[in-house]
Simulated scan of single mutants.
Amino acid sequence: MEIIKENPVHKLLTDDKLAELDAYIESLDDKEGMLIHILHKGQSIFGYLPRELQLHIARKIRVPASKVFGVVSFYHYFTETRRGEHTISVCMGTACFVKGAETVRETLKRELKIGFEETTEDNKFTLKEVRCIGACGLAPAIMVDDKVFGHMTEETVKTVINTYRGE
C-alpha cells in the first residue's frame, strides 16, 4: 500500500466533517468489515464520495484504495460526484420513451443548463437518466428525489422545476 505523507483531501472536505467521519471510524471495532457502513456515513456527511475522501477512508482503515474504489463503483447507491439538493430522474423506459420522454429530457437539460449526471451551478439540481421508475401508467414520468410526477410536458417540467426553486 502506498503511503501518502500529505493529506490530499479536497478543500470541500472540511476539517469538521472529516473529524465527524474519523470519530465514527474510530468508534468501530472491525473497521475493514464495516467499510460499507463507513462509506454510507461518509456520503451522508459529505453528500458524495470524491476520490480524495475514498483515499482518506482507505488510509484510516488501512486497506488498499482499490478495495474502497471497488466498493464505491459496485454499489449504485454511492456517488463520486457532488449532487444537488434535489435529484431529478428522467424515466427513459419503453412506456415513457414512446409517450415523449425525449422531449421531457431535452426540456430539463435546456431549463437546468446541464447534462445528465451533472449538477447545476447553484447546487440545487442533479439530473439523472434512469431506465424505469415503475410509473408506466403516468408516462412520461420524472422523479424529483422520491416524488413521482407523471404525464409530463414541456410546461409541466418548467412548473416542477420552478416549484423546487421556490418560485
Rank of each mutant, 00 (worst) to 15 (best):
E102Q: 04
L12S: 11
K31S: 12
F97V: 03
L55V: 00
Y77D: 08
Y77S: 12
E20P: 02
L53H: 06
F46S: 06
E6A: 13
L108C: 01
F116H: 01
G100A: 04
L108H: 03
G42S: 08
P64D: 14
Y75H: 11
R51S: 03
E111T: 14
Y77R: 14
H56N: 06
E52R: 05
K5N: 09
L21R: 12
Y77F: 10
I38Q: 01
P50K: 09
R82D: 05
H76Q: 12
T103Q: 03
S27T: 14
E2C: 00
F97Y: 11
R83W: 01
V90T: 08
T87F: 00
V68T: 06
P50D: 08
R105H: 09
L35G: 01
A19N: 09
V104I: 03
D22E: 15
H37S: 13
E6L: 10
A95T: 15
L108G: 07
Q43P: 05
F69K: 09
F74A: 14
V98P: 00
V72T: 13
I57A: 02
N123W: 00
T94N: 05
N7Q: 12
A58R: 07
H76G: 14
I38W: 02
G84T: 10
G70M: 01
L12R: 14
L12M: 05
V68I: 12
H76W: 04
I38K: 00
Q43N: 10
R51Q: 11
K113T: 04
I88H: 04
K11R: 08
E121S: 13
F46I: 03
V9C: 12
V90Y: 00
T120F: 06
L108A: 06
A19H: 11
D16C: 01
T120Q: 01
T94V: 12
K41N: 13
L39Y: 01
S73N: 15
K67C: 00
V104D: 02
E52P: 04
F74T: 13
E85M: 12
N123D: 14
A101K: 07
M92Y: 07
E111W: 06
E26P: 02
F69G: 00
S44D: 12
R105D: 14
I114M: 07
E118H: 09
V104K: 06
V71G: 02
F116W: 03
G47A: 10
F78C: 09
A101C: 00
S89H: 04
D15R: 05
V9Y: 04
N7M: 07
E2K: 06
T87V: 15
G47W: 13
R82E: 15
I45G: 00
E85S: 08
V90P: 04
T94R: 08
D15I: 10
V63N: 10
E111L: 11
